[in-house]
Amino acid sequence: MELHYDQSYGLKGKIECRIKDTGLVEFRNVSMGYDKGHDVLSDISFKLETGSMHFLTGPSGSGKTSLLKLMYLAHRPNSGEIMMFGQDVANAAREDLPKLRRRIGVVFQDFRLLDHLSAVENVALPLRIAGGKGPQINEHVEELLSWVGLDERMLANPSALSGGEKQRVAIARAVIRRPDILLADEPTGNVDPEMSERLMYLFVELNKLGTTIVIATHDNKLVEKIGAPRLHLEKGQLLHIQGSKKKFTDYEGPR
């Protein structure tokens, strides 16, 4: 599959790897808790290079989803700094958040598709939020849905889609605007191994296009197979970062 993102939206023609230097993520001594409970993340510090791909691993309750929430700006930390796109997003003004969020694509563990909208409409949402309108949007969306293998299911509502199909719609929605950072929370949790590999190949392809990617997963086999570096969490603490921080390009997809 050959892909190309133009300046505005969507996929066209050939691959063009255009790495932006705005995808850098840096956590500096970040701690986070919900309400007045204890910290679910303590003193987290790490740095992700632009265009890198990382797995976020760790047992259930280790804080993977919370870390992702900080990264997709759904929560503010109790302390510390989070540098994204060259600014401290942890302390960004509320009115600045929408613009920052538009640069982040998120694949939620439970998909979080809008049930009353079709697959096409769900995927088109980020474009419409950004002010896009007209048939041009549908063209891009349909192209991307074809790319994720949903040509026949474009008009189906999420309730009529299987887990794997929903997951692919969610991924398409997350990447349609070509975000600088793509965050995926257990993206293969609801699909069979074959589909897991196909989805992972999709992430790798996006990473090749320059998107910084962080994937939270339990699937150690998949992590080993792909071989991208890991951020490992245990009880809210970042224990180690394995492997290279370089951009991942080795994986060639399922065989």
């Binding site: 997709y72 759904a74 969020r101 538009r102 998120v106 809008l114 949402l125 939020i129 950004a130 929605r173």
Partner: peptide, 15 residues
């Protein structure tokens, strides 16, 4: 859920 998703995708309050 819809509103949260819209927010997380970058929808402004005015929208």
């Amino acid at each position: 859920n819809t509103i949260e998703i819209m927010h997380l995708m970058g929808a402004q309050d005015q929208m």
